[in-house]
Every structure is written in structure tokens, then in C-alpha cells.
Design a protein around this nucleic acid. Structure first.
Lengths: 390, 390
DNA sequence: CTGTTAGCGCGTTCAT
DNA sequence: ATGAACGCGCTAACAG
């Protein structure tokens, strides 16, 4: 509980240093910018001493104001609660470090309003570029960015109508990889669980890839509950099988898409209830005990990302107890800490590289590269754990 | 793959707006600062229109340069990988939002060098204050901050020799709460597992509180492995019991502190090996089967925070399989997602409030409050799960 | 090699 | 009610 010293005494400016060193501001500026070749060793020493004595530190704001660039880039993140985001961030930070950029991290916390505000703020602070992991968002919100505005690169998802570089997972390949894995391991009923994807390209692609594989192999049908309103399957509507009749017995595989809006707990409850019915039905219909040496008759859940997987796992654990995985298998895109702990199979994204590449792209744009908008799709890696084996 | 439009055309300045509106810069400035009372409705309309037409956005850098305050505060975070950090961040962001501050998030990623660099950077950007969740760090690194420098408030840990406000968990109470819970549930051998704590006040306090409770109830001894070098028990050295002889049988409770340096995988291996020996010994010595209706003879692990708990859980799961919790109980300070999923008992920190209060404190300092350095200790909440019951 | 001058975009007296 | 002029801290010509 020592008394605190008085407030900041006002920092030294370049003028102070110049006076202290008995010279002009220009020389100080030159010194700061490493133009040593244009300074006599003697003057240089005096400057060094003066800086030391005054504990001088150049004001980056003023600096940026003058030269028109402040080495600041914005990182607009939808959700730091998602391990994916933090991992991407690490790669991005490393790249910034290497390229002499300073990232301003903005956390929208899943609120579109926040996203808008931060974008505005970044603009007024004149960041040189923005890398954005947008939440489902209309192009208009990103207006100040991309095409006409400041350089931008999108991470994980692209935004309709917004021309900009983007880097993320090869979603099609990843979803196919996961689906094939489940099929290869004998599952004949697979539920793909995903958040509302009308607005989010990565979710769309994952779901579409899953659906296509399932249609090629057997049947697919959509869930009625979950999404708000019309759902996202366009004019084609629900296809293939109609009701939840069991088809596994005859050797055909059945795919099902369930939309879970994690932001709407009532909708989550409804979705999970539907899932429960399917799981119970599978348990009844299957004449083999749940610990049979095959996966036929055991339902597999394919979570489109870690938050969904966590939601599912928590629910299943609460409903079926610690041994829930003997009743249902879980596979998730994203590879959070707890996956290893619970033996859940995952598809790990190259998160670090995604972040790194994103910043590299942005840096090129900032330096004036004018090529067409690029897409960088990186492959995911399947990590097989006990959950999907038998 | 549309061709990208040409680079940014240069944003409008206040001068442009003044010209467009057919007036002087001053009026524009007044408008921007809400001094409407000093503007004729007619002029005001013209300004509004001009701003709209030019899509003008004031340059915060220049603004800050002029008035000497930029509403920026730095948030120096040791490890965004730790859920604790993200949760604190959310509270802090909410407070910033409410107080009109813009947080600059800096992620040191557990590297002291990074911490130093970011602090430097924040200083040169003239942030008005800093809230810092330091990694074990010498006071000198924080020199530019606190006392003589810019206002600062510490989160979670205090730094020796640095006078500044601090807000965090009531570590003593939390550790006592956890220890008592274990004792009350019949455990007679408890291992407190913690990262090296010579530099980290919160870890020190937790360990000390644990040790004191154990000494009052029975015995306590230190682990030989783990920490780098001398360990952290000061001149008192190891006390109480010497070797890992079983004492549970005679009704006495035994406490043990194990230091695990998560940054040093070899040390982690050694520490875990010692733990394994103890667990195996307990399993042998206990004449009751591991599923006996009592916890006597079952070892309890008390993790000082979530990263430690995760490390322990992963190891135990790998060694004893999915049913590891029947052999050993786990209690952790911090309440990560996976705790609920795996049924681990925790002590949840009031993270959101910690972040919120930290920013409030900082704001007061920025506004010139001069009281003595304050400590704000918030209570933790015990969340009992299956792991520590029987 | 070194100092002088002129802004960068904005806020703020101080006149009008 | 409104605008001209000066300066924030710094860099970039342009002289000397």
C-alpha cells in the first residue's frame, strides 16, 4: 500500500532530445531511422547520450501521421473462445513479428454490432490492412474494406460480394475425408451437425461435401428443426429419404444434416432432442449389443467444428453418462485440447499456417501487389482416436 | 478471381470536408466534437452532407497527437491459450466498451522477450494505460509502467517491487477451499501440482495456502524433481516427512507439492514419473479395491491451474486409460470447458469480473485518481464434480 | 555531414 | 456564430 508517485511527467519529444544534444531535430530523426552513414561519430555519440539521459522514445503516432503508414494491421476475430481462432492468431502474430507489423486484435465476441464498430475503429486508426475472420455478415458491413477500401484478407470464410484474398481450410476435402473415414469404419448412419450456414461459406462447403458423399453412397436427409426460418438448402429442398426410418439393416448408409444454432438455446434443445430420438432408435433397432465388434447400427456424429462438437459432447455425457461414446461416435473438424482427452477423432486444421499465410498475403497487398484475389486452401489432417473405431 | 480494384485512393481529410462544405476546418472540428450549440442549423446540414458525400472519417492518430490522449489502452496477455486469459479479456472488453476505451491486445505467447517488445511498443504508441497479465517477470521489464511510467494495473499476479493496482483471485481462500474439500471427502494423500512459482505470486500464494492447511492437518513434503535449480521454498527447505512412505493407513493425511515446468518437457516427464510411482504405491498399499466406497487410499491431485490440470489429465489418461479417474481424483483451479466433460472438480475464478474491474481501476488512474495502490481479491467458486466424490 | 523549412490531420485559442 | 493561425511530434525535401 505504498503511496503512488505522481502522474506521468510528460515524455521527452524529439525537440527535447535535439536541445539536449545541442543539435537539430533532423539529425535525431536520422539517427532514429538508422541513417548512420550521414552522422559524424561524434554527433552520434551525443545523440545516443541524450536519448539515454531523457529516456526518449519516439512517438509512433506522430511518426505514422507523417509518413502515412503506421505498420498497424487490424485482426478482426469473430470468437476468441474458439481454440481455432487463438491458433490462427499465433501464426499471424509470428508473421507480423517477421514482417515488422503490429497487429491490433479486435474481438467481436460473436456480436455483429461489435464487428461493425471495430471495423469502423480500425478504419479511423488508419491501419494499413485488415485480416478478418468475419462472423456471418453481409458484405455491406465490410464495405470500408477489401476492393475499394483498405487491403483485407479473409480467414476461414469468404464473404459474398467481397473481392479479397482468402485463406483457410480445404473444406470440401476435409469433409470428404471425415465422411469417408466414418464410412470405411462401418458406420451406416451419420449425422452431420453444423451451425446455421446460410451466411458462412466454410460451413456451407463442409455440409455440401458431406451431403454429396452421402448421396453417392446411400441416402441423405435434412433435419426439420434447428435453423431459424427457411433453412439453407435452397430451392432443392429436402431430398432422398423423407422420414427417419431405419435403413441401416439393409446395408445402405444414411446421412442426415442437423442444424444447431448455438446462440439460441431453445433451438439447441430441440435439435439435441431430435438427435436423442435417433440415437435411441438406433439402439433399439440394432439387434447387436452396443459393444458389438462392428459399428453398424452405431450412430456417428460429424461435428462441423469444435464449438458444435463440445455442445454435443456435453449433452451426450449428461444424457448417457461417462460411457456415452459406446453409444455414439464423434468426429469433429477442429482439434481442441479436450479431443485427445476424451478420445474424439478429429480433423485438425493447419491453423498456424493459415494465420501466417494470411498475414503474408496482406503484407503483399500493402506493398502494392495487384494480382487478382487469391484463394489459399490448406489441407486438414485426420487424427483417428478411439471414438470412431471398434 | 475478379481483378482487384486499384489501391486506396487516399482518404478525405478535414480540409477536404471544409472545402466541400464551403467553410473552415474549425467548424468541421466542432461538428465532430458535438459542439452543436455553436453551429447554425444551416451550416450543420452542409457539413453533414459533405461528410456523407466524402465518406469522411476523422483520423484518430492525428486527433490523439493533438489532444494528447488517444483512448488506447494496452492489454499485455501472457497466454491466450489459457482459457482464463480469454475469459478475463471478455470482461475487460466489456468495460472498455462501456468506458470508451480501445484495447490493444498484445499476446506474449509465454515469451518474456515478446513481453518486453510489446511493452516497448505500447509505450511508443502512447497508450494511456496498460493492464498486464505478466509472465514471471522481473520488475525491471515493467519499468516503463506503473509507478513512474504510464498507469498500469496487474491481473492475476503482482510483480515484486512494482507498485500498481492489482486484481485477481483470492488465492489463499481458493486453495484452502480446494484443500478442505479434498480433506472433507476423505482423501488422505493430496498432491498439489504447480508450475515453477518463484516469480509468480499467485502460484506462490496457492501453494503456500495448500501447504499450511496440510501442515495443520497432518504432514507435507516437497518433491525433489521438477523446478529448475534451487526450488522455491526459501531457506526453510523441505519439512515434515522425508520420503514417500505411506502414512494414510494410520489416519494421518499427507500433502505433497510437485513442481511441473510445462515449458520443459524433460522435467515434465520426470515429474509425472514421480507421480506415477506414488499412484502405483497407493494402489498397492491400499487393501481396498479402487472402487471402494471411500476415498482413503485414493490419491487426489490438486492442480494449481488449468494448463497443469490438462497436462495431468492427458498423462493419466494415456497411462491408465479412459477410467483413470477411478484411480486418482483431480481438482483444479480454473474451470475450462473440458472439466465438465470429464467430470473434474474445479474452482472457478470470477474471470469476467476480474477483467472488468481491472479496466475500471485503470480508467480511474487514467483520470487522475491518486490513492495508494489497491489490491482487489475476488473469491473463487467450488464446482464439485464426480472426480472428487465417491 | 548538418540544419532549416514545410507540412501530415487535427484541435484550439483568439479574433472577427 | 465562424474562421485564421499556430502547434502536437515527427519526417522529408532542400539548402548550406
Amino acid at each position: 500500500m505504498n503511496p503512488m508517485p505522481p502522474a506521468t511527467p510528460r515524455r521527452a519529444t524529439i525537440t527535447d532530445v535535439a536541445r539536449e544534444a545541442g543539435t537539430g531535430k533532423t539529425s535525431i530523426s536520422r539517427y532514429l531511422n538508422g541513417e548512420m552513414s550521414a552522422l559524424s561519430p561524434e554527433l552520434r555519440a551525443r545523440i545516443e547520450a541524450a536519448i539515454e539521459r531523457l529516456d526518449y522514445q519516439p512517438n509512433q503516432m506522430a511518426r505514422g501521421l507523417k509518413r502515412g503508414r503506421n505498420r498497424l494491421i487490424g485482426m478482426l476475430l469473430a470468437d476468441l473462445t474458439n481454440p481455432y481462432t487463438v491458433e490462427v492468431l499465433q501464426g499471424a502474430e509470428a508473421a507480423c513479428h517477421a514482417l515488422g507489423l503490429m497487429p491490433l486484435i479486435c474481438h467481436a465476441a460473436n456480436e455483429v454490432e461489435m464487428e461493425r464498430r471495430y471495423l469502423q475503429l480500425l478504419t479511423t486508426y488508419r491501419v494499413e490492412g485488415v485480416i478478418v475472420n468475419a462472423l456471418g455478415v453481409r458484405e455491406e458491413t465490410l464495405r470500408p474494406v477489401g476492393g475499394g477500401g483498405i487491403p483485407a484478407v479473409l480467414v476461414d470464410r469468404s464473404v459474398e460480394g467481397l473481392v479479397a484474398d482468402m485463406v483457410g481450410l480445404d473444406n470440401r476435402a476435409a469433409a470428404e475425408l471425415g465422411t469417408r473415414h466414418l464410412l470405411d469404419n462401418g458406420f451406416d448412419e451419420i449425422w452431420f451437425v453444423v451451425q446455421p450456414f446460410e451466411q458462412v461459406s466454410s460451413r456451407q462447403l463442409r455440409e455440401a461435401a458431406f451431403r454429396e458423399v452421402m448421396r453417392a453412397q446411400g441416402e441423405w436427409s435434412a433435419s426439420a428443426v434447428g435453423g431459424r426460418g427457411e433453412g439453407g438448402w435452397g430451392a432443392s429442398g429436402v431430398s432422398g429419404v423423407s422420414g427417419p426410418s431405419r435403413a441401416g439393416a439393409n446395408g445402405r448408409v444414411r446421412g442426415h444434416t442437423l442444424v444447431l444454432d448455438l446462440a439460441d438455446s431453445a433451438a439447441v434443445q430441440r435439435g439435441l432432442a431430435e438427435l436423442d430420438r435417433a440415437i435411441d432408435a438406433a439402439g433399439d433397432a440394432s439387434n447387436a449389443p452396443t459393444n458389438a465388434p462392428t459399428n453398424a447400427g452405431r450412430i456417428a456424429l460429424f461435428a462441423a467444428n469444435a464449438p458444435v462438437a463440445l455442445c454435443l459432447a456435453l449433452h451426450l455425457k449428461a444424457r448417457y453418462g461417462a460411457a456415452w461414446q459406446s453409444r455414439v461416435a464423434l468426429l469433429s473438424i477442429d482439434d481442441p485440447d479436450w479431443a485427445e482427452l476424451t478420445g474424439v477423432t478429429t480433423i485438425r486444421q493447419p491453423t498456424y499456417e493459415i494465420g501466417y499465410r494470411a498475414v503474408e498475403f496482406l503484407h503483399e497487398r500493402i506493398e502494392g501487389v495487384q494480382t487478382s484475389a487469391r484463394d489459399c486452401l490448406l489441407p486438414g489432417e485426420l487424427i483417428v482416436r478411439a471414438s470412431t473405431l471398434r
